[in-house]
C-alpha cells in the first residue's frame, strides 16, 4: 500500500474563521477514499487544497510524493468541482474539446478520449446539444467526463452524484470501481450516508475536524452501529459531550 495523498496537520483559516483544524489523512494507491460530512464541514475546502487550488494556512499536503500546489502534479489530477463548471453556450463536445486541449490532448487521441468518456457517462447522443439545454444530471455527468479526459492518476470528485438518478449513480460507481482497479486513486466527497458505504476508506468530517476514519465496516464495528449514519452520530455525539 503506497500512500499517494498525504495530508499532514493541515489547518485552513478564512480571516478569523477556522474552516479546517489539524487534519491528518492518507490515501493509498488505487483506493476509493470517501470524505463524509454535512455541508459546511469543510469537505470542499479540503479537496480544493489537495487539488492545488487553495493553499493551507498551516501544515502540508503532498500528492504523488510532491508538495502541493504544483502545476506538474495538477496535470495528473482530475478534478470535478461541486458546481458544474461548464460553458453553457457551447455544446457538450466543445466543452470536452476545450478541457482536453487544456491538458494537451489533440488530434486522434483527443477524439478517442472524448468518445470514450462520453460513452462512459452515457452522453454520446447529446454531445451536439448546447450545455444550457442539458438537465442537471446531464451536466453532472459531463463534468465527470471532463475530469476523466486526460486519464488522471488521481481523481478528485466533489459531490459527484448529486441530482443523478439511482440507476446512473450505480453505473457511475461501477465505473469508479473499474478506474480504481486499473490504478486510479479516487477521493470523493459526499453527504449521503449510504453512498459512503461504497468507499474503501472513509473519513468523517464535522465542523472542520476529522472525527473518525477507517473502512466503513471498521467504523460500524467499533461503534457497534448498524449503519454509517449511526456511526457518524456516535462520533458526532462524542464531540458534543466533550
Amino acid at each position: 500500500m503506497e500512500p499517494v495523498i498525504k495530508v499532514t496537520n493541515v489547518s485552513k483559516d478564512y480571516q478569523s474563521h477556522q474552516v479546517l483544524k489539524n487534519i491528518d489523512l492518507t490515501v493509498n494507491n488505487n483506493e476509493i477514499y470517501g470524505l463524509l460530512g454535512p455541508s459546511g464541514a469543510g469537505k470542499t475546502t479540503l479537496v480544493k487544497m489537495i487539488a492545488g487550488i487553495e493553499t493551507p494556512t498551516n501544515g502540508s499536503i503532498s500528492v504523488l510524493h510532491s508538495s502541493m500546489p504544483s502545476l506538474n502534479i495538477m496535470s495528473q489530477i482530475g478534478f470535478m468541482a461541486q458546481s458544474d463548471a461548464l460553458y453553457g453556450e457551447l455544446s457538450g463536445r466543445e466543452n470536452l474539446e476545450f478541457f482536453s486541449a487544456i491538458y494537451g490532448l489533440k488530434g486522434q487521441k483527443q477524439k478517442e478520449r472524448i468518445h470514450q468518456v462520453s460513452e462512459l457517462v452515457n452522453l454520446s447522443k447529446f454531445l451536439q446539444k448546447p450545455v444550457n439545454q442539458y438537465s442537471g444530471g446531464m451536466k453532472r455527468r459531463l463534468s465527470l467526463a471532463a475530469a476523466l479526459l486526460h486519464e488522471p492518476k488521481i481523481l478528485i470528485l466533489d459531490e459527484p452524484t448529486v441530482g443523478i438518478d439511482p440507476v446512473l449513480r450505480q453505473s457511475i460507481w461501477d465505473e469508479l470501481y473499474k478506474l480504481s482497479k486499473s490504478g486510479t486513486t479516487i477521493l470523493v466527497t459526499t453527504h449521503v450516508m449510504d453512498e459512503a458505504e461504497k468507499c474503501g476508506q472513509l473519513g468523517m468530517l464535522r465542523d472542520g475536524k476529522l472525527i473518525a476514519s477507517g473502512t466503513p465496516q471498521e467504523l460500524k464495528n467499533v461503534t457497534s452501529s448498524a449503519s454509517i449514519e449511526d456511526a457518524f452520530l456516535y462520533y458526532g455525539g462524542v464531540q458534543h459531550e466533550n
Binding site: F79, S83, A85
Partner: peptide, 14 residues
C-alpha cells in the same frame, strides 16, 4: 461566478 475559473485553476493552466 460560474465556477469555471476555479475549474480552470484546477488544471495546469498558468
Amino acid at each position: 461566478t460560474s465556477g469555471t475559473l476555479e475549474r480552470l485553476l484546477a488544471t495546469p493552466m498558468r
